[in-house]
Design a protein around this nucleic acid. Sequence first.
DNA 1: ACCTGAACACCGTTCAAGT
DNA 2: ACCTGAACACCGTTCAAGT
Lengths: 186, 186
Amino acid sequence: MAHRRADVVQCALGVLDEYGLADLTMRRLGSELGVQPSALYHHFVNKQTLLAAVADELLARGLSPVPAGPWDERVRAACGQVRDTLLAWRDGAELVATVHAFGLGGHAAQESIAEALSGSGLAEELRLTATRTLLHFVFGHATEEQTRMQASSIGAIEADPSETSDFEAGLALVIDGIRVRVGDPV
Amino acid sequence: MAHRRADVVQCALGVLDEYGLADLTMRRLGSELGVQPSALYHHFVNKQTLLAAVADELLARGLSPVPAGPWDERVRAACGQVRDTLLAWRDGAELVATVHAFGLGGHAAQESIAEALSGSGLAEELRLTATRTLLHFVFGHATEEQTRMQASSIGAIEADPSETSDFEAGLALVIDGIRVRVGDPV
DNA sequence: ACCTGAACACCGTTCAAGT
DNA sequence: ACCTGAACACCGTTCAAGT
């Protein structure tokens, strides 16, 4: 077989999207690669590290540099990009949020937002706080929306297709809170 | 033995606080109660439901009505109460955030914040968005802080005791964003 | 109403050994 | 460098049967 680390991550992304995070097990991944589960420990010290690599790969594929412009437009673009990337994969939001909470990965998402905020003129400490606040919102909102979507597709809870996402509205709220500190007129 | 539902939840809270969420298993809980794991399924249809009951009990113990006052002070108090309650239990933030994401419990936290926002004069739809945005921030911030604290107490990552929490600062940001919509002067 | 005992179909991880 | 095979110490859940 002779797989490399990148092959394992690639395959794991496929398993994630087809079967979900709960079924992304070392055993399933091994059998999908035609390899014993123990072989995976040649590439990753444990499952957590593997999941972090999967989260990072998923973000790397979905994120691209945010075009120049006013800081608030760039923040909107960066947050929208992160959100779209998470929602593009089954359980993507839960995976990245978990990995990020444990400090093992998902840094690209934070980087992207921090970068967009760099043009705001905010002091470094406050900029970090603003970045993390935006990230908590994006992760929390995406996780909730994705979980609900999947629950309703299973029929576990009744879907309400008329209900449009309030992501934009919530994001605008946080951005306005940042704007107050930047000193721009609201 | 003849335990009731409430006995099981009470015991589960003890296991949670002493051993953590990962070790709060049906088997461990059963042995702690002196009962077969299968006996627990007399009280709860599955583990998820049990965890939801534990999350709700934890919140019920920690939350109390927020005193009257200006809406922003009430929001600060409500969010602080939720945060303190989550941090008071090992893995409390992760537990409640998970249960809430799956829509199985944790509603008391959302209720508490929504109630505090009721005096803001915000239209219902926007008030719901504001509530969820605040909740995502509180859950996300508490989860990250608790995970980091526990990781550093294990020695997994180096602790930085000089680093003070930016919870107040992040919360103030979101509240200011809400204030813009309320129409109060910033 | 509450519980037992046994089973089913799984997990992550380790480790000596192989090529 | 990459993998096998076997083992260890676990999981959640079901179900017939007991009191």
